[in-house]
Structure formats: C-alpha cells, structure tokens
C-alpha cells in the first residue's frame, strides 16, 4: 500500500515539477532575485540596497496585489528597461544558440565516444 502511495507521489511530482510559492513575500523575493539592478549592475534587485532596487520591490508588491502574474511583471519591466533586466534569458531568435550550443556539443561528444568505443 505504501509503495503505491509513493508511486502516486512520484507521478504527482512529475506533473507539477515547479515550485509554486504560496506566499506573497516569497514571490516578491523570487521575482526580485531574477531581476538585475540598473544602479549596481551585477547585483540582483533582491541583493541590491539601491533606491532603484527598493522601488522595484515596492512596485512588484503593488503589481502582485493588482493581480498581475510573474510573467506580466517581467514583460512590464522588459518593456521599460529592455531584455537586460531579467536574468532568466528568454529563448528567442537571438538567444537560441546560447541554449543550443552546449547541448549540440554534448551530442557531438557523445557521438565521438560511441565511435571510439563501438565502431572503429
């Protein structure tokens, strides 16, 4: 019986494999960690203590209260400050190689190893 329980749990895990924040402040932290501060460039909005970062945190809170989703907040800020502000690089025409290159290299390496081991 217990085994069955864990198998079901396993399946549930696969279905909802994302960590959903249930709390407002956890969501603010999560979003602000993914935003890059324009004043202290190189720090996230979450880490930065600059006026800009503090304002952004207030803004995120306001937007969440207005019922905006995480994605909507990102696209609002991208519209204002450009793609640069978000750490999580989106996949588009210009960034597709960023995501694909390591994977292509991995597949290529795999082929080389298979050739060395099985063929030849």
């Amino acid at each position: 019986m217990k085994l069955l329980k864990y198998i079901i749990f396993f399946i549930i895990c696969i279905i909802q494999s994302n960590l959903y924040a249930d709390n407002n402040s956890i969501l603010i932290d999560k979003i602000s960690k993914n935003l890059r501060c324009l004043i202290c460039q190189g720090q996230s909005v979450y880490d930065s203590q600059s006026e800009f970062a503090n304002s952004i945190k207030i803004l995120i809170n306001k937007k969440i209260q207005e019922g905006n989703s995480e994605e909507e907040i990102y696209s609002y800020l991208k519209n204002k400050y450009g793609q640069w502000i978000v750490y999580d690089t989106e996949i588009n025409k210009k960034t597709v190689y960023l995501w694909l290159f390591p994977v292509i290299l991995f597949v290529f390496g795999g082929i080389l190893i298979i050739r060395k081991v099985f063929i030849n």
Binding site: E51, F52, S55, I56, I58, L59, K62, K80, Y81
Partner: peptide, 9 residues
C-alpha cells in the same frame, strides 16, 4: 516610492 519614475522608464 519611486513608482511613477519606474512607470516612466
């Protein structure tokens, strides 16, 4: 709060 400024970009 600096929110209007952010709204302006």
């Amino acid at each position: 709060d600096g929110i209007i400024s952010i709204d302006m970009g």
